[in-house]
């Protein structure tokens, strides 16, 4: 759990904050329409770019927030947990995750959102996710070597590219704005085509 604004021993108060942030996150996902499996699958087929827009917006918002709060001395970035990288197991897991996401149309977070909004496919995906967790735990002795393979430590772009963090922030913002403009132009053209997307 990462609670960069709270004391290290926040305990129950920390869990309360986590619950509040989680509910807000779920509400945001539902409001953005990401509880809808068709919309999520549409991203992979190039017919709906809501996922790209919502998630890239979230990345840029959080990144600018963390960067500027850190610059102002309000947030200590050293207390923001950076997950460690294991190249091979994460590539394998990512591929498996992608297949599941296209097939089910939901990811773990959005499946909870869809279930909370009363969609039965959300419940089905949550069931599959729990079954997958149990299967993983049961099969762990067989795959523990893969699980521990190719450790690369915590990687961040400023460290990897040896540039100041601000440069990476500016580059990601430019990428996001470029992607938004490109996707909107694509959607306008698609809408103009006979029988194109609405």
């Amino acid at each position: 759990m990462t609670l960069p604004f709270l004391a290290s021993d926040a305990g129950a108060a920390g869990l309360g904050v986590a619950l509040a942030v989680g509910v807000a996150f779920g509400w945001g996902l539902e409001r953005a329409g990401l509880g809808n499996a068709r919309r999520l699958a549409g991203q992979f087929f190039g017919t709906d770019f809501t996922v790209l827009k919502v998630l890239f917006s979230a990345i840029v918002t959080a990144m600018l927030g963390v960067f500027w709060l850190a610059q102002m001395g309000i947030l200590d970035p050293a207390r923001v947990y950076v997950p460690e990288t294991w190249l091979l197991p994460q590539a394998v897991g990512g591929a498996l995750f992608g297949v599941g996401m296209v097939a089910g149309g939901l990811c773990p977070g959005t499946s909870c959102v869809a279930a909370a909004a009363g969609r039965r496919d959300g419940l089905a995906v949550m069931g599959g996710m729990l079954a997958g967790i149990l299967l993983f735990a049961a099969a762990f002795p067989l795959i523990d070597q893969l699980y521990e393979a190719t450790p690369a430590g915590t990687l961040t772009f400023p460290d990897l590219l040896r540039v100041p963090p601000g440069t990476v922030v500016a580059a990601v913002v430019a990428m996001a704005l470029g992607a938004f403009a490109g996707v909107e132009a694509f959607e306008r053209r698609a809408a103009l085509r006979p029988g194109g997307a609405s």
Binding site: A70, Q71, D76, P77, A78, T167, V169, V172
Partner: peptide, 22 residues
């Protein structure tokens, strides 16, 4: 976003994300 990103380019001195030590 573009303004904050451009300012980050100017402000982001070396090791800015490492300024805090836990």
């Amino acid at each position: 976003a573009a303004t904050l990103g451009a300012l980050a380019l100017v402000a982001g001195g070396a090791g800015a994300t490492r300024q805090g030590v836990d």
